[in-house]
Design a protein around this nucleic acid. Sequence first.
DNA 1: CTGTTAGCGCGTTCAA
DNA 2: TTGAACGCGCTAACAG
Lengths: 379, 379
Amino acid sequence: MRPQHSTSGVTLNDVAREAGVSLATASRSINGSDRKVNAEYRQRVLDAAARLGYIPNLSAQAVAKGSTSTVALVVSDIADPYFSGIASGVIDEADAHGLIVTMAVTERSAARELQLVRTLRGQRPRFIILVGSRSADASGDVAHAQAALVAELDAFEAGGGRVVMISQQELPYATVLLDNYSGARDLAKQLVARGYRRFAAIAGHDTLLTSSDRLRGFRDGLADDGITLPDDRVVRAEFTRNGGYDGARELIAAGLGDTQLVFAVNDVMAVGAMSALREAGHTQVFAGGVGGAGSGAVASDASGRSKQLIAIAGFDDIPTALDVSPALTTVRVPLEELGRRAIRLALADAGAAAGADTGQGATTSVGTSVILRESTPAI
Amino acid sequence: MRPQHSTSGVTLNDVAREAGVSLATASRSINGSDRKVNAEYRQRVLDAAARLGYIPNLSAQAVAKGSTSTVALVVSDIADPYFSGIASGVIDEADAHGLIVTMAVTERSAARELQLVRTLRGQRPRFIILVGSRSADASGDVAHAQAALVAELDAFEAGGGRVVMISQQELPYATVLLDNYSGARDLAKQLVARGYRRFAAIAGHDTLLTSSDRLRGFRDGLADDGITLPDDRVVRAEFTRNGGYDGARELIAAGLGDTQLVFAVNDVMAVGAMSALREAGHTQVFAGGVGGAGSGAVASDASGRSKQLIAIAGFDDIPTALDVSPALTTVRVPLEELGRRAIRLALADAGAAAGADTGQGATTSVGTSVILRESTPAI
DNA sequence: CTGTTAGCGCGTTCAA
DNA sequence: TTGAACGCGCTAACAG
């Protein structure tokens, strides 16, 4: 008869006894950073462990060594392909280094993010990786939350943890930089090269750095060719598929005028916008046939009424971008790579951690590239 | 001067000293399951904790109590919207119960799944949630891996943990059932009602239960109306977007014949298949205008050559299903709800755990519903 | 190289 | 109610 509510786990003690050695030897045999242990004993221990089905208790190890092998990943919304792509990379790379990933979701709320970080610290993770939702709002509440977040994060680093941000370096921590500005700027230039001149845009709220950087890059890219993106042609919406949909409807309601192309600051929004435009009869250009991109920019409005054709472009290159029709022109962001880099940066940074606290924290950048597809045929 | 490599964390001891009470009192004040502590002391402790920025060490708590507040979630691929949708629900519900979620990815390999479960047990999680990749392959390796998995899972439950499976109850554990069979069957019947008679299908490999159940349901649904799905009209492919794409190409290469509709056993495959069909000139039906579904089933092949129009249907209702064009007809699966249910089931099951080991484990079912969209207009 | 002994941070029993 | 002491499972000194 086993004890009733036994957590039953076989302990290292059991293994040691079964193998007829001391606890210490058992520990060394199974985890021995150095192999200061007789091969025969070692084998006896390993056998005993296998026989008993022993599995080391990570919590106990963590308490004993004073450090865990856990990485805390904080995202806005795991169902969003942008975040799940990054998460995929994080998990993969973490796993390659024997690290376990715990995941938390902020639902795009700074308050929740703060609360989460606080809670997560209880795990004493080695790293905390924050992706998305960095904002630049100087106003009361947000600024306050931001300061509190920094305090929390600093305390975490003071305790030996490392924090890594993904996207832009708004806070003084190690960061995997994504050049949103340049990506959008390049996109703008290539669209102009394809013949577009009159644009509209669907952006996120001003405070979202990712959104404002992309918008600014796009604007500057146009400006390089003497084209301006009128303020009244830029709508703000949620950073989601529905946000894109709503933004497009707003644009339509306000009158598309002679707009030729709508730039949505991210793909999920672009995809939502496409659906809105399609529903409104602004049938998307369609490249049929097996031929490459931009082959036949033909379209027919099923409603019969002649509506203006609107081209569209996004940012991120989520998998879906390839499957909507017309396929979405976008700026490719190596999502998984972003995640992998975060782990590598944390690992490297941790190594150099003893060194100087040079203010801003280490960074690494990932490049973007413009992917022209059928949603923006040459005109 | 603090100790050098200090993990620096403020401990409960520090708090106790600061508050001028014993460790025990501090512990009770902060965590007191029962409130057997003087209100004044309690407050002093709480204040001290706040002042010092104390955060309880979860690992230490876990060792002391012999149980964690962790849930291990195992998925095939977090970048797949099916899994990320479920994960979203799991994380949300877990969070609502103060549970932390750690995530692991099998990359659709049974061997890796087994290895992961073994590793995960080290965390001593309260629950292990397995979603996807259940297979019914009686052959050597797989059967062996399956047996090993069951052994591992049984040991886990023997140690007080609970395992919950999502999808089908192939193994004797608590399960959130998804009626793949009925969903597909209903879909088939509704498609027949819309006038379709000649079908093809893109399925996953035979061993994938999710795939075979759906295919069987679809077949039976057709059979109810005296229609058969010929074996040579069913191709097998990877359970991914590219799998769907490849499957469709295979179908095309073999000759679509008079096929009217292609059923892909899940949405990501369906979406991939749509792209393949589109590229091949089997322009999808297109419902323009603001009107509802099936309004104008019009299409024009940009290549000029007249190609056959192929309707398509999927399963899962991933977000993208709404944004491809034509919008994808599918069977809605409440993904987030699936995840939430898993947590609730584990929680409930844990409560009743002391009770009888009634062989199969508790179950709960979630319903599906057919969503007819433009990809399958009435004909 | 091995065993003994201390802790790690915290929950919980047992007296007081 | 409170505090002292022990134990959780394990690692890391410390002697032997």
